[in-house]
Design a protein around this nucleic acid. Structure first.
Lengths: 248, 248
DNA sequence: CGGAGTCTTGATCCCGTTCAAGCAGCGTGG
DNA sequence: CCACGCTGCTTGAACGGGATCAAGACTCCG
């Protein structure tokens, strides 16, 4: 049990980038109660087919939403960073269809009961709208992934993903878009981009050779943002994170 | 101006498949006012970058959400059928990032002012939740598309898409999953599945040769549903259309 | 020191693209 | 009535991006 958990500040900050919340609503968000848990890598937080009664706020680390195929292949459909309430949608559709899994070692989450979230939603219309809006933004990102995987070649795809993560990390206050931590192995990036680990490796090597990316252990650096953005023809509008949203 | 428009009945039916609405809320949905319009094919209903103040309820025909790339390539990220309020998400993020376009000739829509929808949302919490839930379901479908395009080969992908459309048409009361109208040309299906029109043609020919699909003009028939579903390893759970959702 | 996981590299193969052309249906206009 | 042009469907041939198979190298850790 914890109140005013640091992750709640991140979460509130996230919501406020897209929605306006009054004092009372802000306080209500910050007083959300949850149970913290550490998740080991490759361990499912949520298994598809289950009926859930909680959502997961990421405290630190990375998590991903997985789709799984009969033949054992997996496809990541979303990557979540600290401050994301990564399965907020399960509040509306508690029978989840997607596995949620730690991307990296050292994933810490805060499990928040649906009951508590629903109470918030019913008591504060502004919070309901903010949650709804965040679910829509999540969908916008997923749509962009469809475009990315469907119509861009491997190199563009990869550059685009690094741009997206960079911008999201920066806006979350977890780094700069040109320098941020990313603890995901190449196999997982491949699963996110719909390609094989071998090819993922070659593409990343290429990006490093061309000095578009510098990757050292868990740290990513972008020497020249504009060139990387051009290589991925990245336009962050779909992230719905600039101020133009702030109209009720 | 119209009230109790037939499309509103479809829309209400859609909402009620996922959410519980009381009498008053049902009546409120049915009394939504809108301006009907006929859209020509290849004409944008909504252009990306615009600020919208209305949403589109499809009366008849098909519409699609498009992502566009610098090189002119397009990727469809969602297909909408009659009864879909196809850009409900713009209610929360009025600055749209996606083009919305007629997929077929003979698309009729009902333009509904955001103002009216927001009034409904504020007056009836049940409607707000139903709208929110539908946005989440839309996101679930988009996630499935990521899996489909990212990890399935062309034949599976195609079979999967036909299964999805079949089930959605059936649930909307617009046909049976084994026999439904679909007015989309092969080029557009290719844009939805991230492939070239030429290859799309070959795959469809293959499915017809194997008697998995019968396509005559605008009508699709599925001689053996189970075989088609197997060919696409289709499991409709992600559509969130069975009754298990009906818990508030 | 051995083993597991990750990164790296090479060789070969194939699914899907690309380029190109022919064909069928259909509305339009001479 | 046929010629035409347009749009969508179909087919062939050749190419290439990414997959697949296989093995070696590095790092971390027990």
């Amino acid at each position: 049990m914890s109140s005013r958990h640091p992750a709640l500040r991140l979460f509130l900050r996230r919501l406020q980038q897209r929605s306006i919340l009054n004092e009372e609503e802000q306080a209500a968000i910050l007083s959300i109660k949850g149970r913290q848990a550490e998740i080991e890598p490759h361990r499912d937080i949520i298994r598809p087919g289950e009926l859930t009664d909680f959502s997961c706020l990421i405290v630190s680390g990375f998590a991903a939403r997985f789709g799984q195929l009969d033949n054992g292949h997996r496809q990541i459909t979303a990557i979540h960073i600290a401050g994301d309430m990564c399965d907020l949608y399960s509040l509306m559709l508690p029978k989840v269809e997607w596995a949620l899994q730690a991307l990296s070692a050292r994933l810490a989450i805060l499990k928040v009961a649906h009951r508590d979230l629903l109470d918030l939603v019913h008591a504060y219309p502004g919070i309901a709208e903010a949650f709804w809006r965040d679910c829509v933004a999540d969908g916008s990102i997923t749509s962009q992934w469809v475009v990315n995987i469907g119509r861009r070649d491997a190199r563009m795809r990869t550059a685009h993903l690094f741009c997206e993560i960079g911008v999201r990390m920066e806006r979350a206050g977890l780094g700069r878009r040109t320098a941020f931590p990313l603890s995901a192995v190449q196999t997982q990036l491949a699963d996110a981009l719909g390609m094989t680990p071998v090819h993922m490796n070659r593409i990343i090597r290429g990006l490093r050779r061309d000095n578009l990316l510098i990757i050292q252990g868990r740290d990513v650096q972008v020497p020249d943002w504009d060139r990387l953005a051009a290589a991925g023809s990245f336009d962050g509008g779909y992230l719905a994170m600039d101020e133009s949203w702030r109209l009720s």
